[in-house]
Design a protein around this nucleic acid. Structure first.
Lengths: 194, 194, 194, 194
DNA sequence: CATGAATGAGCGTTCATTCAT
DNA sequence: AATGAATGAACGCTCATTCAT
């Protein structure tokens, strides 16, 4: 029985993955349910056994997407006072991931959707607030948390901004970008070392 | 006479402004012609006396939007060897403008649309390439233009990224952001001073 | 004053001629008021000083068109007992005129419109009945008017049918057609001559 | 099983039949998709599961209509040297069919549409050329094919012309027409009998 | 008399969603 | 669980008609 009937969770994930591909190709509004169904090799109507509406698919996909990002913050959380080193060491990966058209397109869609869809805005903001709260608990006593928060915002802005630049200018020389960004990050966070 | 017959150009601008408001509210795809017409206090059909299609409105609005940005690059162009000073001095204005939800939302829409609409992508990329070409002609002899280009990309990425962050986290402390970004920009461009 | 202000009748005729050209190009339904106005070198709105509606233009154009045809019947009427000779002699002209794409197209439009627009059907049928009535008063006493009517119907059907054939097969060899049609007409009407 | 799932082909035919009725009532341009849908007892949107566009419906209906006509030519083709006899024998049927307001209206619409829609013109002309080509291969050795072609054109023109006359003058006495047309056809084709 | 900007109902078409099977 | 035929509201766009000038 377990083998015969596909697991609800598997099907949902298959759908979510298919939807992400369609959203990148056509945007949240532009992606058609039929297109998502075809991508997931499923009939259109059957989607509604797993999701109530297109909006729910969007919401869950957004949630899933930021959970992945959360894992990056999780690693930072566990790095203790070597947070900065970890950030610098991971920069290549961070920039590459952010510049991956797939992820940057999704981030773009999500943010744009958040501007007009309060549900999506909530998901994004809640996740964002939680991530920062967690960083605050583990980050340096003795340092100005307000300022640290701002510096982190700038760091995130930079990484996401590079993803967007890469869409407009796909010739962007990523390795060159990474080496300069390392410099920036050092200057951003490594202020008080003797 | 001037009051009697509405000028074609005025009407087009009225429409473009109304469209921009609707695009920010609902996105390029989500904004309805009827909504734009209502916002411009005009009948739906009458829009088509001024524009051939919704797509043309989007394209012209995008063009107009980047022309405004071009003026910033124009100022840098005219700054001669004080480019960096000008950039730092203007940072407050740049960040505020980029963080204005209206403009950052439009930038977001434009970039997202460029991902799926080759016409919009063309407009964006052509303008982008031209702006950078102009900077290259006026910027530092004796400096590595390739690296300068990369540093500029990072600068633009940062400014745009802050705009996006401001959407997700509207509580962003912009003055604090500006003071730290000034530091980053100094470090990005003021390398060779003795 | 008479010279300064264009005569209403002239304007109407200009409009009617322009409309006919548009109707041939695009059909009654397909022709746009703006197209007719442009063809008549007049503003769209000004049409409504001369005609109440598009339908009225169609109706008057149909009326004018069949009045021209009526003149052919008029000539037959005046031909006395040489009707058949006149018909045969005029065949070349009749066929050429009927095969003129301009006129055959208009006839087509008119008949098609008559199928769904009772007003047009009335105009067509009234004119038709009148023409036949006039022929009856001048045509052969001593001949079976019922049968003559049928033969005339067949004659008209043939001439109009050739016009339509010429649309579908524009390579139609009209001179060859004329010579055979002469034969047919002789056989249709010249039965009882000794 | 057969009753449960409606066959695509059945639905298409249902739609085509409904469309034909609407086209006769309102013309190709005048018929509304909603009207066709109602006539086929189907929702508007569902039409688009079977046809890509209104134009495709028109094209397929035209094709189907001339295929039926082709069958008449097929019978003539198989009649060998008794073509003329068959034509005369079938005249009653031919005239009745041509005078059927439904078919003559469709023919009218088709021809009118061919004047402005190249696709429809192509369908009509291709079918026409093919039918004549087939007749040429089976018709009289020893006869002048050029002239025969012209006589056939005249025959077709006459039959179609009668259909149109019947629209303008529905009181047409068809039996009387048939008997005279028989005479015409005999004279048209039965020239060389000893 | 003349203009053309302005209107808005209505068109062909699309697509998220439902439901009989 | 799974299908895909079916729905119908809503979209972008058109165009006959009106009206201020």
């Amino acid at each position: 029985m377990t083998a015969a009937a596909p697991q609800t969770k598997d099907q949902r994930n298959r759908l979510l993955t298919a939807a992400a591909r369609c959203f990148v190709k056509s945007g949240f509004r532009g992606a058609r349910m039929a297109q998502i169904a075809a991508e997931a090799q499923m009939s259109t109507g059957h989607i509604y056994h797993y999701f109530d509406s297109k909006e729910q698919i969007i919401a869950e996909m957004v949630r899933g997407h930021i959970e992945e990002k959360e894992s990056i913050f999780g690693r930072l959380e566990r790095a203790g006072d070597q947070v900065v080193d970890l950030m610098v060491d991971n920069l290549e990966e961070s920039v590459d991931s952010s510049a991956n058209p797939f992820w940057s397109a999704l981030t773009l869609e999500m943010t744009a959707e958040a501007m007009r869809n309060p549900k999506i805005a909530d998901i994004l903001r809640t996740a964002d607030a939680e991530m920062k709260a967690r960083l605050f608990t583990c980050l340096g006593e003795g340092s100005d948390q307000e300022e640290l928060a701002t510096r982190l915002e700038i760091f995130i802005a930079l990484i996401q901004g590079i993803g967007i630049r890469n869409i407009i200018n796909p010739k962007l020389d990523l390795p060159a970008v990474v080496s300069i960004v390392k410099e920036v990050v050092e200057n951003l966070f490594r202020r008080s070392k003797p």
